[in-house]
Write a protein that binds this DNA or RNA. Structure first.
Lengths: 196, 196
DNA sequence: ATTATCTATAGATCTATAGATAATGC
DNA sequence: ATTATCTATAGATCTATAGATAATGC
């Protein structure tokens, strides 16, 4: 493959990091290419040499962020309880990086409108997360960790909804909502409920 | 043209309804006063005669929408199980009015940033909802519907998070997520769990 | 007198493109 | 030869204000 000019790759990384902050703070529509360019000490036209449009930059940022996340959230082979404990760890980690969490909260909120450039991305992401989580719960049932006949799909929807919903409340009012503890309690209750 | 201040209140109502749609579709930052004005057949300057700035218009829309909602969501005297069933009905109703739901999803997402004009509004709203819900759960325990010593505050956080989180998933991918059914299942599980 | 509405416009944005120049890699 | 970067700018926005005119209420 084309191993590009080293300065270009480094610059792209810096742009992605700066764009992530800008999108997280202002959403897609409120973000400004000029401000992102300023953060990486580049002219606005110079920025558009690396990412040809604002839309493409957003998608690149989301993929970039997602890639980091996929590793932490890798439950493709974990058992049921193991996967749930993994989620709790993700939430605990998230409670230490509000900036990254904010990107997803802001963009997911905006992306409910079909014409938003992140709409398709968000849909694919949720489908993937739901499928992975449901599969982990099914494995849990097969292994006898959970009782048979559980509604894995519904519980997967709920786990993801709980993570997202608590994030919003926590970001808006951090002192009032202990995101990690409240989520952990949910998982504990769920394990009790699903016990064979 | 017959125009005068007898029409003022009616015009304000129309503006609020049009602004609600515009904010729901585009968020605060993406919304355009000119487009809202167009929807109510008014010049953009004419619109600003009724609401002096875009910020004030957003707050007015949120209050307007909230007022309608407060009645449906009135659980200030209901018992525990009654309140939970009320929430299920709210979610069922919401699943028939995606436009209204979208306003809250979009604005709540944006409003996580402290400088957003809806930030304070969102914080107050969540505090109020959490307090109301926790109070209803406490009443449920007092009346013997739920076991004593339940963590009402944590369950209140979770109920609200679940509603919000499912809304996002449902708005992004309506065919894949049966919001009302999944939420109803959560409430059923919760009632089982909290049984004395 | 007060309210409702208009046109016109100031003053800031914003994204994206064109075209020139400089740096880097093969 | 390709990539990186710049300045300049077109062309669309956007919000808010000023000042004029018309309709309504006292």
């Amino acid at each position: 493959m084309k191993r590009g000019y080293a300065t270009g790759e480094a610059r792209k990384e810096r742009i992605l990091a700066a764009a992530l902050m800008e999108f997280a703070e202002n959403g897609y529509r409120g973000a400004s290419l000029a401000r992102i360019a300023e953060r990486v000490e580049l002219s606005q036209a110079g920025l558009l040499h690396h990412f040809r449009s604002k839309e493409r930059l957003l998608v690149a940022v989301l993929d970039y962020r997602d890639e980091l996340d996929v590793r932490k959230f890798d439950i493709t082979s974990a058992g049921g309880i193991e996967a749930l404990r993994g989620l709790v760890r993700v939430v605990e980690y998230n409670s230490r990086v509000p900036g990254l969490v904010q990107l997803f909260s802001v963009i997911s909120g905006e992306a409910v409108t079909p014409d938003h450039p992140g709409h398709e991305w968000a849909r694919r992401r949720y489908r993937r997360l739901r499928a992975q989580m449901a599969a982990a719960l099914h494995r849990g049932a097969e292994r006898g960790e959970f009782r048979a006949g559980l509604d894995a799909e519904a519980h997967a929807d709920r786990l993801i909804a709980m993570m997202d919903g608590l994030q919003t409340q926590w970001l808006i009012d951090p002192d009032q909502v202990d995101m990690a503890a409240v989520f952990s309690g949910y998982v504990d209750d769920l394990i009790t409920l699903l016990r064979p």
